[in-house]
């Protein structure tokens, strides 16, 4: 009884302070717009909110806000999906087989420290401007992280558990599926999480530079046309979608890895 009361008090407080903090933020923003030069280049909260809702029906450029967002989303999901699959495969390979590690790792090391975004000019020269270029950039953005995390997982296999499996009669070819794969899963998910946020980065940058639609374009066009409110709503929506995807991924992980400490 008392515990429940305490919790509800605590949540009440959280809400009150949260709303207070948010109002404070809006107030500072509004005041800055009214009383300083800030207002001449930056939209006020009211204008931003109005633009945000208007953007659902009135197209900006070629699409409405939802259109731009779904284009970006599609690009991210394709590029990210491809890079995750490739990253997991190569990571597992390098983590499990010393031979594969010896062959692939030195070449991978050249690519690894190059940020996905730095591939943009090369990608344009190689593939030209188009969808595949954007996929390629997103792919490169998440790939190294995926490989590194998966490899880390596959290398951190407990040798004791491998021994246990062998004593129980597992053959060499069963070890991979029965031990290496399941124990890498938490690492793979960590990779998926980090690589998702870099994929978002990459799609924004790629769209800013090479595309004429998508959230990145929306943000950049806001600057170029002097309509900063487009910029603001672009950022808000991309933040929201990013948050949603990350939450989705976390939920999937929670379901798939009930056995880790997280579930407790």
């Amino acid at each position: 009884m008392t515990v429940r009361q305490w919790i509800s008090d605590d949540t009440k407080e959280t809400w009150i302070y949260g709303i207070l903090g948010f109002l404070l933020f809006l107030m500072v923003w509004q005041m800055a717009c009214v009383f300083t030069d800030f207002g001449t280049i930056f939209p006020s909260p009211g204008v931003s909110i109005r633009t945000f809702f208007m953007a659902f029906i009135e197209p900006i450029g070629r699409y409405t806000l939802l259109g731009h967002i779904s284009i970006s989303l599609k690009r991210v999901l394709i590029g990210y999906g491809l890079s995750s699959v490739a990253g997991i495969i190569i990571g597992l390979l390098m983590g499990y087989s010393k031979m594969a590690h010896a062959i692939i790792y030195p070449i991978f090391c050249i690519v690894r420290p190059i940020p996905g975004i730095a591939w943009i000019p090369l990608a344009i020269l190689w593939i030209g401007i188009g969808e595949s270029t954007i996929y390629f950039i997103i792919f490169m953005g998440g790939f190294s992280q995926m490989v590194m995390n998966t490899m880390d997982g596959a290398q951190h296999i407990s040798p004791e558990l491998v021994g246990v499996a062998k004593v129980l009669g597992a053959k060499e070819n069963q070890i991979f599926r029965k031990i290496v794969l399941p124990s890498s899963v938490p690492y793979i998910f960590t990779g998926l999480q980090t690589s998702l946020s870099t994929s978002w980065m990459a799609v924004l940058a790629a769209e800013m530079i090479t595309a004429r639609e998508g959230a990145g374009w929306l943000i950049l066009s806001g600057m170029q046309t002097g309509r900063i409110e487009n910029n603001v709503i672009g950022m808000i929506s991309i933040g929201a979608v990013g948050l949603l995807l990350a939450a989705l991924l976390r939920e999937t992980e929670r379901r798939l890895c009930i056995w880790t400490v997280r579930s407790r």
Binding site: E13, Y17, L20, S197, L204, A205, I219, I236, I238, G239
Partner: peptide, 23 residues
């Protein structure tokens, strides 16, 4: 309690998104 929700709001925006505003 005052700052966490605000922070949670700006956290998911990729830094690249800030480039045009800052320019």
């Amino acid at each position: 309690k005052l700052f966490s929700p605000l922070f949670d709001l700006i956290k998911p925006i990729p830094p690249v998104g800030w480039v045009p505003i800052m320019i």
